[in-house]
Protein backbone atom coordinates (compact mmCIF):
# COMPACT_ATOMS: atom_id res chain seq x y z
CA UNK A 1 0.00 0.00 0.00
CA UNK A 2 2.72 2.42 0.97
CA UNK A 3 4.71 1.62 -2.11
CA UNK A 4 1.56 2.33 -4.14
CA UNK A 5 1.25 5.69 -2.45
CA UNK A 6 4.85 6.44 -3.29
CA UNK A 7 4.30 5.64 -6.93
CA UNK A 8 1.14 7.63 -7.10
CA UNK A 9 2.05 10.90 -5.50
CA UNK A 10 3.74 12.28 -8.60
CA UNK A 11 0.54 12.24 -10.68
CA UNK A 12 -1.58 14.62 -8.54
CA UNK A 13 1.55 16.63 -7.73
CA UNK A 14 2.39 17.10 -11.39
CA UNK A 15 -1.18 18.23 -11.96
CA UNK A 16 -0.88 20.88 -9.23
CA UNK A 17 2.49 21.91 -10.61
CA UNK A 18 1.04 22.44 -14.09
CA UNK A 19 -1.72 24.66 -12.70
CA UNK A 20 0.84 26.67 -10.73
CA UNK A 21 3.11 27.00 -13.74
CA UNK A 22 0.18 28.29 -15.82
CA UNK A 23 -0.53 31.12 -13.36
CA UNK A 24 0.84 33.92 -15.57
CA UNK A 25 -1.23 32.73 -18.55
CA UNK A 26 -4.58 32.43 -16.77
CA UNK A 27 -4.22 35.92 -15.36
CA UNK A 28 -3.72 34.99 -11.71
CA UNK A 29 -3.26 37.92 -9.31
CA UNK A 30 0.30 39.20 -9.00
CA UNK A 31 0.83 38.11 -5.42
CA UNK A 32 -0.34 34.58 -6.30
CA UNK A 33 2.37 34.47 -8.91
CA UNK A 34 4.88 35.61 -6.30
CA UNK A 35 3.73 32.84 -3.91
CA UNK A 36 4.08 30.26 -6.66
CA UNK A 37 7.51 31.65 -7.61
CA UNK A 38 8.78 31.39 -4.03
CA UNK A 39 7.21 27.96 -3.72
CA UNK A 40 9.23 26.67 -6.69
CA UNK A 41 12.49 28.25 -5.48
CA UNK A 42 12.11 26.98 -1.93
CA UNK A 43 11.00 23.59 -3.20
CA UNK A 44 14.16 23.14 -5.25
CA UNK A 45 16.32 24.15 -2.28
CA UNK A 46 14.40 22.01 0.21
CA UNK A 47 14.64 18.99 -2.10
CA UNK A 48 18.40 19.46 -2.33
CA UNK A 49 18.70 19.81 1.43
CA UNK A 50 16.65 16.64 1.84
CA UNK A 51 19.01 14.88 -0.55
CA UNK A 52 21.93 15.82 1.70
CA UNK A 53 20.47 15.63 5.19
CA UNK A 54 17.84 12.98 4.61
CA UNK A 55 19.42 10.60 2.13
CA UNK A 56 23.15 11.19 2.60
CA UNK A 57 23.38 11.95 6.31
CA UNK A 58 25.12 15.27 5.64
CA UNK A 59 23.47 17.97 7.78
CA UNK A 60 24.72 20.76 5.56
CA UNK A 61 24.31 24.28 6.90
CA UNK A 62 26.30 25.94 4.10
CA UNK A 63 23.59 26.04 1.41
CA UNK A 64 23.46 29.88 1.49
CA UNK A 65 27.06 29.81 0.25
CA UNK A 66 25.98 27.98 -2.92
CA UNK A 67 22.99 30.15 -3.74
CA UNK A 68 24.91 33.29 -2.86
CA UNK A 69 27.95 32.44 -4.96
CA UNK A 70 25.76 31.60 -7.95
CA UNK A 71 23.77 34.80 -7.47
CA UNK A 72 26.94 36.85 -7.22
CA UNK A 73 28.52 35.17 -10.25
CA UNK A 74 25.46 36.01 -12.32
CA UNK A 75 25.25 39.60 -11.01
CA UNK A 76 28.93 40.37 -11.46
CA UNK A 77 28.70 38.75 -14.90
CA UNK A 78 26.05 41.23 -15.98
CA UNK A 79 28.45 44.04 -15.02
CA UNK A 80 31.24 42.78 -17.26
CA UNK A 81 29.06 41.99 -20.22
CA UNK A 82 28.25 38.31 -19.73
CA UNK A 83 24.57 37.57 -20.56
CA UNK A 84 22.48 36.68 -17.49
CA UNK A 85 21.62 33.17 -18.69
CA UNK A 86 25.27 32.23 -19.11
CA UNK A 87 25.98 33.82 -15.73
CA UNK A 88 23.17 31.82 -14.17
CA UNK A 89 24.44 28.47 -15.44
CA UNK A 90 28.04 29.46 -14.85
CA UNK A 91 27.13 30.54 -11.33
CA UNK A 92 25.62 27.16 -10.59
CA UNK A 93 28.79 25.50 -11.90
CA UNK A 94 30.89 27.80 -9.69
CA UNK A 95 28.72 26.79 -6.72
CA UNK A 96 29.35 23.12 -7.53
CA UNK A 97 33.07 23.78 -7.87
CA UNK A 98 33.06 25.55 -4.53
CA UNK A 99 31.31 22.50 -3.06
CA UNK A 100 34.08 20.35 -4.52
CA UNK A 101 36.78 22.48 -2.85
CA UNK A 102 34.82 22.54 0.39
CA UNK A 103 34.35 18.79 0.39
CA UNK A 104 38.12 18.26 0.78
CA UNK A 105 37.91 19.96 4.17
CA UNK A 106 34.47 19.22 5.57
CA UNK A 107 34.05 15.59 4.47
CA UNK A 108 36.64 14.59 7.03
CA UNK A 109 34.21 15.79 9.67
CA UNK A 110 31.26 13.76 10.78
CA UNK A 111 27.91 14.51 12.37
CA UNK A 112 27.87 17.64 14.45
CA UNK A 113 31.36 18.71 13.32
CA UNK A 114 30.18 18.67 9.73
CA UNK A 115 27.18 20.77 10.70
CA UNK A 116 29.24 23.42 12.52
CA UNK A 117 32.02 23.40 9.93
CA UNK A 118 29.51 24.11 7.19
CA UNK A 119 27.69 26.69 9.34
CA UNK A 120 30.82 28.86 9.43
CA UNK A 121 31.27 28.92 5.63
CA UNK A 122 28.45 31.33 4.70
CA UNK A 123 29.43 33.55 7.64
CA UNK A 124 32.98 33.78 6.31
CA UNK A 125 31.72 34.45 2.77
CA UNK A 126 29.49 37.22 4.04
CA UNK A 127 32.53 38.88 5.62
CA UNK A 128 34.46 38.48 2.38
CA UNK A 129 31.70 40.13 0.38
CA UNK A 130 31.50 42.93 2.93
CA UNK A 131 35.17 43.68 2.36
CA UNK A 132 35.68 42.76 -1.28
CA UNK A 133 33.99 44.81 -3.98
CA UNK A 134 34.51 42.87 -7.21
CA UNK A 135 33.29 45.62 -9.51
CA UNK A 136 32.96 49.32 -8.79
CA UNK A 137 29.86 51.41 -9.18
CA UNK A 138 26.45 51.71 -7.60
CA UNK A 139 26.14 50.18 -4.17
CA UNK A 140 23.00 48.70 -2.74
CA UNK A 141 23.15 48.26 1.02
CA UNK A 142 26.34 47.42 2.89
CA UNK A 143 29.43 45.92 1.26
CA UNK A 144 29.20 44.43 -2.22
CA UNK A 145 25.57 45.27 -2.98
CA UNK A 146 24.84 45.35 -6.70
CA UNK A 147 21.92 45.77 -9.05
CA UNK A 148 21.73 43.37 -11.99
CA UNK A 149 22.61 45.18 -15.20
CA UNK A 150 20.82 44.88 -18.49
CA UNK A 151 18.04 42.51 -17.43
CA UNK A 152 15.24 44.89 -18.42
CA UNK A 153 14.56 42.72 -21.48
CA UNK A 154 13.86 39.62 -19.36
CA UNK A 155 10.13 39.27 -18.82
CA UNK A 156 8.64 38.34 -15.45
CA UNK A 157 7.06 35.29 -17.06
CA UNK A 158 10.43 33.97 -18.22
CA UNK A 159 11.83 34.21 -14.70
CA UNK A 160 8.71 32.56 -13.29
CA UNK A 161 8.94 29.63 -15.69
CA UNK A 162 12.63 29.21 -14.99
CA UNK A 163 11.73 28.85 -11.34
CA UNK A 164 8.97 26.41 -12.23
CA UNK A 165 11.38 24.28 -14.28
CA UNK A 166 13.96 24.13 -11.49
CA UNK A 167 11.31 23.48 -8.81
CA UNK A 168 9.50 20.74 -10.69
CA UNK A 169 12.76 19.42 -12.09
CA UNK A 170 14.15 18.99 -8.57
CA UNK A 171 11.26 16.67 -7.65
CA UNK A 172 11.95 14.44 -10.64
CA UNK A 173 15.71 14.70 -10.08
CA UNK A 174 15.30 13.33 -6.53
CA UNK A 175 13.16 10.50 -7.88
CA UNK A 176 15.76 9.61 -10.51
CA UNK A 177 18.68 9.82 -8.06
CA UNK A 178 17.00 7.63 -5.48
CA UNK A 179 16.19 4.93 -8.01
CA UNK A 180 19.66 5.05 -9.58
CA UNK A 181 22.87 3.32 -8.59
CA UNK A 182 23.82 6.46 -6.68
CA UNK A 183 20.60 6.17 -4.66
CA UNK A 184 21.31 2.54 -3.88
CA UNK A 185 24.75 3.52 -2.69
CA UNK A 186 23.25 6.25 -0.54
CA UNK A 187 20.74 3.98 1.13
CA UNK A 188 23.37 1.37 1.90
CA UNK A 189 25.64 4.05 3.39
CA UNK A 190 22.73 5.34 5.42
CA UNK A 191 22.00 1.89 6.79
CA UNK A 192 25.59 1.14 7.65
CA UNK A 193 28.55 3.10 6.39
CA UNK A 194 31.13 0.43 7.21
CA UNK A 195 29.22 -2.37 5.55
CA UNK A 196 28.70 -0.18 2.50
CA UNK A 197 32.41 0.52 2.28
CA UNK A 198 33.27 -3.16 2.72
CA UNK A 199 31.05 -4.23 -0.17
CA UNK A 200 32.86 -1.85 -2.47
CA UNK A 201 30.90 1.38 -2.35
CA UNK A 202 33.14 4.41 -2.51
CA UNK A 203 31.54 6.29 0.38
CA UNK A 204 33.48 9.49 -0.22
CA UNK A 205 32.60 9.62 -3.90
CA UNK A 206 28.91 8.88 -3.42
CA UNK A 207 28.63 11.65 -0.84
CA UNK A 208 30.65 13.98 -3.04
CA UNK A 209 28.31 13.46 -6.00
CA UNK A 210 25.24 14.32 -3.95
CA UNK A 211 27.04 17.34 -2.49
CA UNK A 212 27.89 18.59 -6.00
CA UNK A 213 24.38 18.00 -7.38
CA UNK A 214 22.88 19.75 -4.39
CA UNK A 215 25.22 22.72 -4.74
CA UNK A 216 24.50 23.02 -8.47
CA UNK A 217 20.70 22.97 -8.16
CA UNK A 218 20.68 25.19 -5.07
CA UNK A 219 22.92 27.63 -6.94
CA UNK A 220 20.62 27.60 -9.96
CA UNK A 221 17.56 28.27 -7.80
CA UNK A 222 19.44 31.04 -5.99
CA UNK A 223 20.46 32.71 -9.24
CA UNK A 224 16.85 32.67 -10.44
CA UNK A 225 15.74 34.16 -7.12
CA UNK A 226 18.19 37.04 -7.49
CA UNK A 227 17.27 37.47 -11.14
CA UNK A 228 13.74 38.13 -9.92
CA UNK A 229 14.85 40.36 -7.07
CA UNK A 230 17.07 42.45 -9.34
CA UNK A 231 19.78 43.12 -6.77
CA UNK A 232 22.03 41.18 -4.41
CA UNK A 233 23.77 42.17 -1.18
CA UNK A 234 25.82 40.08 1.25
CA UNK A 235 23.94 40.23 4.56
CA UNK A 236 20.63 38.82 3.28
CA UNK A 237 22.35 36.44 0.85
CA UNK A 238 24.80 34.60 3.07
CA UNK A 239 22.19 34.39 5.78
CA UNK A 240 21.26 31.48 7.99
CA UNK A 241 17.58 32.25 7.25
CA UNK A 242 17.96 30.40 3.94
CA UNK A 243 19.15 27.32 5.78
CA UNK A 244 16.23 27.66 8.15
CA UNK A 245 13.74 27.74 5.28
CA UNK A 246 15.18 24.56 3.73
CA UNK A 247 15.43 22.79 7.06
CA UNK A 248 11.92 23.77 8.14
CA UNK A 249 10.33 22.78 4.83
CA UNK A 250 12.08 19.42 4.81
CA UNK A 251 11.65 18.49 8.46
CA UNK A 252 8.05 19.68 8.80
CA UNK A 253 7.02 17.87 5.62
CA UNK A 254 9.04 14.77 6.37
CA UNK A 255 12.77 14.31 6.10
CA UNK A 256 13.96 11.33 4.01
CA UNK A 257 10.66 11.15 2.12
CA UNK A 258 10.15 12.30 -1.45
CA UNK A 259 6.84 14.02 -0.71
CA UNK A 260 8.01 15.71 2.48
CA UNK A 261 9.70 18.78 1.01
CA UNK A 262 6.66 19.41 -1.23
CA UNK A 263 4.21 19.42 1.67
CA UNK A 264 6.66 21.30 3.90
CA UNK A 265 7.30 23.99 1.30
CA UNK A 266 3.56 24.55 0.83
CA UNK A 267 3.17 25.03 4.59
CA UNK A 268 6.19 27.35 4.78
CA UNK A 269 4.97 29.55 1.93
CA UNK A 270 1.44 29.76 3.36
CA UNK A 271 2.73 30.63 6.83
CA UNK A 272 5.17 33.11 5.36
CA UNK A 273 2.47 35.07 3.60
CA UNK A 274 -0.28 34.63 6.18
CA UNK A 275 2.03 36.12 8.81
CA UNK A 276 3.92 38.53 6.54
CA UNK A 277 2.59 41.49 8.49
CA UNK A 278 3.95 40.23 11.80
CA UNK A 279 7.67 40.04 11.15
CA UNK A 280 9.30 37.51 13.41
CA UNK A 281 6.13 35.64 14.40
CA UNK A 282 6.23 33.53 11.25
CA UNK A 283 9.65 32.09 12.11
CA UNK A 284 8.74 31.83 15.79
CA UNK A 285 5.72 29.69 14.97
CA UNK A 286 7.71 27.62 12.50
CA UNK A 287 10.35 26.99 15.16
CA UNK A 288 7.68 25.73 17.55
CA UNK A 289 6.16 23.52 14.83
CA UNK A 290 9.65 22.18 14.04
CA UNK A 291 10.27 21.11 17.63
CA UNK A 292 6.81 19.60 18.05
CA UNK A 293 7.16 17.67 14.78
CA UNK A 294 10.58 16.32 15.78
CA UNK A 295 9.25 15.09 19.10
CA UNK A 296 5.86 13.79 17.99
CA UNK A 297 6.61 12.45 14.52
CA UNK A 298 10.28 12.59 13.46
CA UNK A 299 9.19 11.65 9.95
CA UNK A 300 7.20 14.86 9.67
CA UNK A 301 3.70 15.26 8.31
CA UNK A 302 4.35 12.51 5.75
CA UNK A 303 5.06 10.16 8.64
CA UNK A 304 1.70 11.02 10.20
CA UNK A 305 -0.12 10.59 6.86
CA UNK A 306 1.52 7.23 6.22
CA UNK A 307 0.65 5.96 9.68
CA UNK A 308 -2.90 7.16 9.24
CA UNK A 309 -3.28 5.48 5.84
CA UNK A 310 -1.87 2.25 7.19
CA UNK A 311 -4.31 2.42 10.07
CA UNK A 312 -7.28 3.27 7.84
CA UNK A 313 -6.58 0.31 5.53
CA UNK A 314 -6.79 -2.11 8.38
Amino acid sequence: MISRLKNDFLIPTTFIFIILALFPLIGAPRNWILYAFLFFIYLAMANMWNLLAGYSGLISLCQPAFLGLAGYAMTIGTWIGIPWWIGMTGGAIIAAFFAFLLSRAVFRLSGIYFAIGTLVVPEALRMIFYLWKPVGGAMHGAGAGYMLKGIEGVSQNTIFWLAAIVGIGSVYLIRIIIRSKLGLGLSSIRDNQRTAASIGINVFRVKLYTFLISAFVTGLAGAIYYLNQGYIEPSATFNVRWTMIMLLATVIGGIRTEEGPIIGTIIIVILYFALARYAGYSFLIQGIILILIMLISPEGIMGIIKKFLLFAKR
Binding site: L247, L248, G280, L290, I291, M294
Partner: peptide, 30 residues
Protein backbone atom coordinates in the same frame (compact mmCIF):
# COMPACT_ATOMS: atom_id res chain seq x y z
CA UNK B 1 13.01 18.50 24.95
CA UNK B 2 16.57 17.25 24.83
CA UNK B 3 16.19 14.08 26.88
CA UNK B 4 13.48 12.95 24.46
CA UNK B 5 15.41 14.14 21.43
CA UNK B 6 18.41 12.00 22.30
CA UNK B 7 16.18 8.92 22.25
CA UNK B 8 14.82 9.56 18.74
CA UNK B 9 18.00 9.72 16.67
CA UNK B 10 21.42 11.33 16.71
CA UNK B 11 20.34 14.14 14.36
CA UNK B 12 17.25 15.06 16.37
CA UNK B 13 18.99 17.10 19.12
CA UNK B 14 20.75 19.08 16.41
CA UNK B 15 17.51 19.96 14.64
CA UNK B 16 15.73 20.73 17.92
CA UNK B 17 18.57 23.06 18.89
CA UNK B 18 18.15 24.73 15.51
CA UNK B 19 14.44 25.17 16.27
CA UNK B 20 15.27 26.64 19.69
CA UNK B 21 17.68 29.05 18.04
CA UNK B 22 14.90 30.14 15.67
CA UNK B 23 12.45 30.64 18.55
CA UNK B 24 14.85 32.60 20.78
CA UNK B 25 16.09 34.76 17.92
CA UNK B 26 12.61 35.78 16.87
CA UNK B 27 11.29 36.12 20.41
CA UNK B 28 14.18 38.51 21.09
CA UNK B 29 13.35 40.38 17.91
CA UNK B 30 9.69 40.73 18.90
Amino acid sequence: LMSRAFEVSSDTPLIIAFGLSLIIQNANQI
